[in-house]
């Protein structure tokens, strides 16, 4: 199976996850969006050197994955693909921020390394929560939720169309790669001129396909605004989810849970 096939299967598996009837899927998209937004705000509000204090927040994405029956492997692979961007942000911190910080047990470490670790943890937490929000909700309900929260329709429609055209582009790339593999072997080691030709063809084919998709939408009365089929309603479980998660975030932000847990354990041991 080629990489593009795998990518398509992963997109399909995320869409399937969103279509399943799960506790997470049944929640109102607005509740999920607000909760994930609150989570992101709490994550970025920590001190730049915070590492252990952030760790309890991992319970939130883990809980989302469990409630949405979403395979963590798919989410982690996607986080890994995007991770170079986070690493780039903090890559030079160990060299520029050389101040020494004392750790438990008399160990010392450069503050730059701590801030790099903090950036990576924040990235993993926020990106995985966002991916789980999409996988546990579906792009269309998510856009309806965003619109209901007052996000301009132009933005939500761009999001919907971006998803549609990503699938179109990935599909075209899969077919081209297969056609090339059947006649010319692997893409690795292909001369630059052939790469340019392949990419040019991919762009033109994707454009033609996108034109047909757009024509099909126009033919069914699309006039620039996607219809809102709001079949959701805010229920007590949505309030409970939002308040419960928010309380957890406030607790983690206000109390250094690993330290508190360590202190309790030490007291018990003593």
């Amino acid at each position: 199976m080629c990489n593009r096939d795998a990518a398509l299967r992963e997109i399909a598996s995320l869409q399937d996850a969103a279509a399943r009837d799960t506790p997470l899927g049944r929640l109102d998209p607005r509740a999920k969006i607000l909760t994930v937004l609150g989570f992101a705000v709490v994550v970025v509000s920590f001190d730049r050197y915070a590492v252990t204090a952030l760790l309890p927040l991992a319970l939130f994405p883990l809980g989302l994955a469990a409630a949405g029956c979403i395979p963590l492997g798919v989410i982690l692979r996607k986080v890994l693909i995007a991770s170079p961007f986070a690493l780039m942000v903090g890559l030079f911190n160990p060299w520029f921020d050389t101040q020494s910080v004392a750790l438990a047990g008399g160990l010392h470490i450069g503050a730059g390394w701590l801030s790099l670790a903090s950036i990576v943890i924040r990235f993993v937490l926020t990106v995985s929560a966002t991916l789980l929000l999409v996988a546990g909700t579906g792009v269309v309900p998510l856009c309806h939720g965003l619109r209901a929260l007052g996000v301009p329709p132009a933005l939500t429609q761009q999001l919907l169309l971006l998803q549609r055209y990503t699938l179109v582009l990935t599909g075209e790339a899969t077919r081209m790669q297969l056609a090339h593999a059947l006649r010319g072997g692997a893409l690795r080691g292909l001369p630059l001129a052939q790469w340019a030709s392949l990419l040019g063809h991919l762009l033109l084919r994707a454009l033609q396909r996108a034109q047909r998709v757009h024509q099909a939408m126009l033919s069914r009365g699309f006039a620039g605004a996607l219809p809102v089929a709001n079949s959701y309603g805010w229920h007590s479980c949505d309030t409970l989810f939002l308040l419960g998660c928010s309380a957890f975030f406030v607790l983690v932000r206000g109390v250094h849970l690993p330290q508190a847990l360590g202190a309790v354990l030490l007291r018990v041991a003593a």
Partner: peptide, 12 residues
């Protein structure tokens, strides 16, 4: 349209 995949794009 000739290719139904050009037409179908909603989640269900």
């Amino acid at each position: 349209f000739q290719d139904p995949d050009d037409q179908l794009f909603m989640p269900t």
